[in-house]
Design a protein around this nucleic acid. Sequence first.
DNA 1: AATTCGTGGGC
DNA 2: TGCCCAAGAAT
Length: 319
Amino acid sequence: MSEALLQQTQVSRVVERFGEFKQRFPTPAAMVKAGERSVLQAWRGMGYYRRARSLYAAACVITRIHSGRVPRTVVELLTLPGVGRYTAGAVASIAFEQHEPIVDGNVARVLSRLADRRASVHDRLGQAWCWNQATHLVMQAKNAGRMNEGLMELGATVCTPHQPKCSECPLRAKCKSFANQSQDRVPPPKPGLKKTAVVFHALVQIKNGRVGLQQRPTGLWKGLLAPPVIESAKRLPLKVIQHRADPVKVKLEIASFEFLTTHRRVRFVVYEAMFPSTTPMEWIRLKDLGDQAVSSATIQVVDAARGQHRCQADKLQTK
DNA sequence: AATTCGTGGGC
DNA sequence: TGCCCAAGAAT
């Protein structure tokens, strides 16, 4: 469970949340009983929500196929949803003390600098090289889990991407990048992904202290509760919104704002609207919104709508 | 192989 | 401010 939370997420952020997960989902069977929605709710604000759905699915497999016990071999672990090469190796080596290697972003950087390997770690060749190196190291380690954790910890705290603290590094004398002073160029950064602008026209309806949300069936925030949304490349005029949402009766634009994700620029235009229930609409008490399976973005959208409601602004734009 | 998936922190 | 990055996996 901790490794699922840690995928592409800094340790300090997981530390804040892990206690709640341990309490709510002490065993795979307990997670199955709690249900997927409960896992998504606990996951709110953590991003990459596929991990939450995969974790729940893995709990189901473990409960049904493995009698409630987490499998201890890499081969078996790899069959679990959401468990790839890294996670399988981490669980097998750290939890079950098997001599299995791991390569994450930290390990790839540490290994590249030790050898002063200038080529990319992001392609197939680079990954193969990293896994070979990691395999070699873990084979000679007394404790494979400690070796793996040590490599990651070194990368996270000392051998950082920018301005590594080489003066504090216990491997300084063995590091070829330090000898050549190439730390800042090794490994080369991953080529940036181009961002595409997407406008989310959120149709927010609030009545009797409740907001209408539905579970997103696909794409961004899949599985989470969010207002009905009309997506487009550019911002749509109110008339077009009305047409596309037909028989939606769009009444009033109340706010718009934008925020960034790694992969796209998301602009929300928030409308108060009447709309049909295509996928089931769930009416969530505003005061209970924080206890639902929602993204941070949904919280922001609803907050924006509520704020404008309070001051009764008509066609007011906020940044 | 290249994309798609969030969010918050650091510089 | 804008960009990079993070204990990656699935498609």
